[in-house]
Design a protein around this nucleic acid. Structure first.
Lengths: 232, 232
DNA sequence: CCGCATCCGTTTCGATACTG
DNA sequence: CAGTATCGAAACGGATGCGG
């Protein structure tokens, strides 16, 4: 019994043959934060049932996107991690996350904000078109925790880094921050979506900026819709 | 009966709630080339049955990604086209297409090369990291037809264009080409994947380059794997 | 002919239970 | 902890039908 396929000579069809089944890309999302055990994945994907998780993991293994690794005793456990090919999916997830941002409003009781998903969310929020070519680190002091956005230099002329390669979000605050922002993730989301103006947010104390004031404009543009940034 | 949802506060989950069902992204792929009639879509998505197509189109309409437009008589027909929000999916499709390229080998009888999918394929093949900031037009004289890749200038410092915005592939050959390439799409695919070296391909007459010879190195790097390009 | 809607067998998914 | 087995429900594949 062959797996069903779109059966077209097209890179999109082929990708979707591998990734298009339900839950598959969410497993990849989880594994992008590092190797995970079966039970970790199960816990982090509520609504996904054990039998499906097992099946999907096997499919991802068959596609050489995930490997099952047995850790040596005494830590005797099995973990799943992305292969090099699997890590190439980061660009796909980033694009999907960017598209999905406008559909997010505020977390609720049923859909709480999950701290482990915040790094990916922050990376998706960045309008990289506005970034200068140099390196930059921005600290986020959110109600939900502390993260640092590390922006790598764009690269030597003639070979630039992609967005995925430039953006890295890690937990905690680096020592040598160029900028820091105190706010909450929903506020950041509203600013990025243009539902809230930076000026207003700062006046109301919803955001507080630190670091080199000459960079504040950059931050405003980076976390605003394109049209708002262009008008300002 | 509510649609099933991953029910998480996450931009990826939310996107997949809208786009994750079977066939949905392939419909978007088709609509990215312009408005289509119901029967056009049906013909271009073999294996997708009428009932599902109708259902998906309604879902896409509900999500405000597609609009149904009635053309005035005498051309009385209904066409489906992407909304502005829907066109934002181009970045998602580009990322997915890039990921899928390594899984493509050569067209077969059952999976023939579809000319209308070539523009998207060419755009996905470009390693944009290698592109210079200026404008560039490259003509492709393929066995399968003629296309022009128009690369827009990267944009004024401080507000760069994204890959999606820079790359445009149109049918036919522009008059003022900076470069032109005569080859076939499978050869281009092999070059990009590193299964074939440019040097070898040129020696064997599989590729023929025209235009400013000083740009040929750029073309070699742009359509090669990153490691091969770096070594050269 | 175009734009769907209806019907039905098959596959996949959701949910619970069970095993090494 | 790391999965597999089972079974009803939902989604999908495939074909046909019908009004404009």
């Amino acid at each position: 019994m062959a797996k069903r396929s779109y059966d077209q000579f097209c890179p999109v069809s082929r990708s979707l043959d591998l990734l298009g089944e339900r839950w598959t890309l969410l497993i990849v999302r989880e594994l992008l934060t590092g190797p995970q055990r079966y039970s970790d994945l199960k816990r982090r994907l509520p609504g996904m049932w054990s039998n499906l998780l097992g099946q999907r993991l096997r499919e991802l293994e068959d596609a050489d996107l995930v490997v099952r690794r047995h850790l040596p005793p005494p830590a005797a456990r099995t973990v799943y991690e992305l292969t090099e090919r699997g890590r190439e999916l980061e660009g796909v997830l980033l694009a999907i996350a960017r598209f999905g941002l406008p559909y997010l409003d505020a977390p609720t009781e049923e859909q709480p904000l999950q701290p482990r998903l915040i790094p990916g969310g922050i990376a998706a929020l960045v309008r990289t078109e506005e970034l200068p070519p140099g390196a930059l680190t921005i600290g986020f002091v959110l109600d939900e925790g502390h993260w640092t956005l590390r922006i790598a230099p764009a690269g030597p002329a003639g070979s630039k880094l992609s967005d995925v390669e430039r953006l890295d979000v890690v937990e905690g605050l680096d020592d040598d921050l160029d900028l820091n922002v105190r706010t909450s993730l929903p506020v950041l989301l509203w600013l990025r979506r243009g539902k809230l103006a930076w000026r207003e947010a700062e006046d109301q104390g919803l955001v507080e900026l630190g670091g080199d004031p000459s960079h504040h404009g950059l931050l405003h543009r980076t976390f605003s819709p394109a049209d708002v940034a262009a008008a300002a």
